[in-house]
Design a binder for these strands. Sequence first.
DNA 1: ACTTGGCACTCGTAGACAGTGAGTGCCAGC
DNA 2: GCTGGCACTCACTGTCTACGAGTGCCAAGT
Lengths: 343, 343
Amino acid sequence: MSEERRLKVLRAIVQDYVETSEPVGSKALLERHQLGVSAATVRNDMAALEEDGLIAAPHTSAGRVPTDAGYRLFVDRLSAVKPMSQAERAAIARFLEGAVDLDDVVDRTVRLLAQLTRQVAVVQYPSLTRSTVRHIELVPLGPNRLMVVLIVNTGRVEQRVIETSGDLSTAEGEATLTTLRAKVNQRASGERLVDAARSLATLTEEFAPDQGDLVRAVVGSLEDALVEEREERVVLSGTANLARSGTDFPLTIGPVLEALEQHVVLLKLLGTARETTEPIAVRIGHENPHAGLQATSVVSTEYGTGSDLVAGLGVLGPTRMDYPTTMASVRAVATYVSRILAQ
Amino acid sequence: MSEERRLKVLRAIVQDYVETSEPVGSKALLERHQLGVSAATVRNDMAALEEDGLIAAPHTSAGRVPTDAGYRLFVDRLSAVKPMSQAERAAIARFLEGAVDLDDVVDRTVRLLAQLTRQVAVVQYPSLTRSTVRHIELVPLGPNRLMVVLIVNTGRVEQRVIETSGDLSTAEGEATLTTLRAKVNQRASGERLVDAARSLATLTEEFAPDQGDLVRAVVGSLEDALVEEREERVVLSGTANLARSGTDFPLTIGPVLEALEQHVVLLKLLGTARETTEPIAVRIGHENPHAGLQATSVVSTEYGTGSDLVAGLGVLGPTRMDYPTTMASVRAVATYVSRILAQ
DNA sequence: ACTTGGCACTCGTAGACAGTGAGTGCCAGC
DNA sequence: GCTGGCACTCACTGTCTACGAGTGCCAAGT
């Protein structure tokens, strides 16, 4: 019994099932693929595949459907990422190039990805980890309220509002603020975020004790913003595609939507993309940690400019998904958005 | 035939249908409400109501279901906003008070609203229309790229990146930038956004012709940001509730999700809230302009601090919705978030 | 002029039942 | 190890029936 032909059969099953979304039987397989063997032989192979847990029958005497393990094997060994046409690549590039700022880049990326794959697209905001501080601004909002604005070289802006104990509206208060603004920028500008945080920590010493509270408050809030990496934000698009995906699983669409609302879950999904050695990570069905996503697959990858700016991006859809083309789209979009970000 | 009793019947039908999500017949109505009349009488009344287009029968010999017009009458004349308990109000206030910045306020608001109403919540970011400019920062990102940051007194930050023709990295370029930064702030700081835009328009005259390009570019981008009110952003939460809402309309959930992704549509929905005189606007079924939302209702209102800071907020759900309690939740959340924003 | 009880009628729903066909498993032969 | 053949299993479909919820209408009562 040729191992090779068995895999061919598995591949044919996956392809047919993805296309028709119906369990595929031995006869249908013969019609649609030139396997050069008879139906009975295919049946034997299918029995073996079922034995191995790669396919399963929903019920007696229906066709077979790939299991998660079957998809996994298909993705790992039976498929190649489908190359995209030159025209498609050009269209992607053109669409992304119209972006005016970082928000717009991310926005366009996520929309594009959703449209290309006709699935739910998830894009993480570029992380600040390796970025540097461009500028820090302190804006008084009232006698006891101060807004701290952190501008990063990638174009991201972080803002915090803090309550101060001393009165800022007095002449003395304003003077302190001016000094503080200058010193903070002197220490932090141009530094990497982690370094800036470290450097700011010792700033309190340079001020009189009675200004200590204000300085501590400002520095504390900056450290927060710098270290906590709070801007681990994600954007998503194409949720409507979930409803469209065949009569496949409109029943379990609820849990999926719930999972999508918990951005922490999405971040974890995209984060694990970095743990693999593969350029494109695929997580299939039960391989997903989250309970609501066990009927879905996630195709994700990294994007960004070198080691400077790294984030994740990907799509989520039913396990019955066209992996080769989806992977191609994800890869292409990641490539081009990285290029745009590099300017 | 007492007009009054007929309305009582309509109210009973709406209430029962909202609760059971099944067409309600004359008999069931008698069991659950003390109407003091017989089934036959109720039937006559129901026939009259159907004649008036207030209720309809899904098919012969099933119960009746309210029409959009029926809900409308119910909301306008047959129901009162259900007051919330002191404990609930306290819980809302406590939850919102934990917010650390504007983003967080909006985020918490939308989550809270979704959870309270068990529906899809939509919150618009506070609009800048009446706000004033706090500060403008010009940050060079490279020899030919400049980031313009606009900080508004409400705490919002807008950013744009522009390409410049002249080289900014020369000494001369930096000097121009410094001057420009000073002049721009001098003219715009403290002004209302529209006024600032007007005031900036004449700025070009103060610079040498060869700097005109740069100045024009910066001013143009600021005017964009100031006038275009691009930060008409909306956030939403609770989309998973759509799936849960009975076996009501999981069929048409697709179009709804699509509509929700088009933020322009949502903005328009919230915007029209301001056109009514009612404190809380209710748009029912076909009253919605968007085709995908004709099976849904929107309950929305304004929030913000006086005339200074006004935006919309609301929830969206199936037309079969508990209007009195939903309206109560929307009103309460709007009240408290306004209070928080007023500080 | 309403209200009421009664009654015939309509249909949607649920259950039973048989027929059909896709698909399988197995076996004997090549 | 492949192939054709054959019996078997079930899901699916369509039809038929019985049931019951609910209506519309009418004649009688207040």
